[in-house]
């Protein structure tokens, strides 16, 4: 089981954490809700919990709780720009359907 980051995503996460001044890494997760079943979570991490699995890729720690890992296994986190907008994208092989806005998915 693994979750990876692209170089671009890793660079961004590192610089965001540096800007923020602290943080162990980035937490990826899922929660129910959103317009198509599940919604992604992406947060800074200040402390890890018992149920967390920690991956490291390009020098950045990715922290995921057990339950979310089932949905996110194999996911690659990318960073991209669309016009004026920029942000992170989940390339999740488990997702079968995405809603139009891409903020949620079903498996």
């Amino acid at each position: 089981m693994a979750v990876t980051l692209t170089q671009a995503a890793a660079d961004r996460v590192s610089s965001f954490i540096a800007n923020r001044g602290k943080g162990l890494g980035v937490r990826l997760g899922v929660k129910t809700s959103g317009c198509s079943g599940m919604a992604y979570i992406i947060e800074f991490v200040d402390e890890t919990g018992e149920d967390d699995t920690i991956f490291e890729d390009h020098g950045v720690k990715v922290i995921i709780d057990k339950k979310s890992l089932i949905y996110l296994d194999g996911t690659e986190l990318d960073f991209g720009k669309e016009g004026l907008n920029e942000g992170f994208k989940f390339n999740n092989p488990n997702a079968k359907n995405e809603c139009g806005c891409g903020e949620s998915f079903t498996i």
């Binding site: 996460v13 965001f16 980035v26 937490r27 992604y40 979570i41 992406i42 947060e43 800074f44 991490v45 200040d46 991209g80 720009k81 669309e82 907008n85 920029e86 942000g87 992170f88 994208k89 989940f90 995405e98 806005c101 891409g102 903020e103």
Partner: peptide, 12 residues
């Protein structure tokens, strides 16, 4: 695909 931003832990 929406572009997401990193939130504060628990969005607190």
């Amino acid at each position: 695909m929406a572009l997401l931003q990193i939130a504060e832990p628990g969005q607190t």
